[in-house]
Amino acid sequence: MVVLTSSTREQDHGTRRGAGSFFHAAAFHPIVRHFAIFAVLIGAWEIGARTGTIDPLVLPAPSAIAEAMWRLFVTQRNIWWHLLVTIGEVLAGFTAGSILGIGLAIVVGLNPMVRKLLKPYVIVLEATPRIAIGPLIIAALGFGWSSKITIVMLVCFFAPFINTLSGMLSVNEGAYELFRSLRANKWQIFTKLMLLDAMPVIMAGLRLAMASALSGALVAEFISASEGMGVLLKRYTASLNMASAFGCLLTLTALGFAIYRTMEAVGNRIVFWRHAPQMDAVSRRRQAQWQRNWGA
């Protein structure tokens, strides 16, 4: 995302244009233009749908989608329960999967022999489409929540596992040397060096896992379920109520965005030293605490 959004030219673009006239600056400000383009696109889509150029069974009109969303969220309110079920499955599966992944990686990562022996299995597991185990789990554990949570767990186990492993193995040599020469014991090296060093990579793994957790839950619900966003989406599409289906899809986009931002915020909190403003805040707080305690 950094690639897409970071553009140093964006800032001086406005000023360069704006130097000419005030009208130009206001009308052609990037955000205004973004909105204008968006409005034009939506308008063309609406007109296309109204005049019948676009088949509403393929792409329902934006107004119809808005209406469907209003119905889903406000009048009928039937989406809330399904949304809650899916979020619950995602959170439970993600928690279980990441604990399993990180825990296993710590056990394995500390032992080079085990690591070597595990390699072929990891390669096979990496190549397998992990979501494919869905029908098997549902057949084994039934149609309820437990099978969905297990599927989500298996889907998001892998990224934290791999990332924790690689993070712990790429410890800074100089820092390791320093720890050893200051006679840090194994536990100290593990908690204060390896784990901390691996933290940014682990967080990246957790972000990946969270993104795949939502997909995993949806696919599990597609395969067989009685509640959840996947079921709702499938039901609306099967009855060719495309406007409501798109409403569900937009809700999932919002959910995905919320998950993305939350994970980013949590990441900045936990790996604060990678994030300058957060780093300042934390060091200021620690300094204040130090001064309180020792009255410097």
Partner: peptide, 16 residues
């Protein structure tokens, strides 16, 4: 927006 949408959620729509 496309990136944060779980792509697999499109499955039923794509099939329709």
């Amino acid at each position: 927006v496309l990136n944060v949408t779980p792509g697999l959620a499109l499955t039923p729509i794509v099939i329709a």
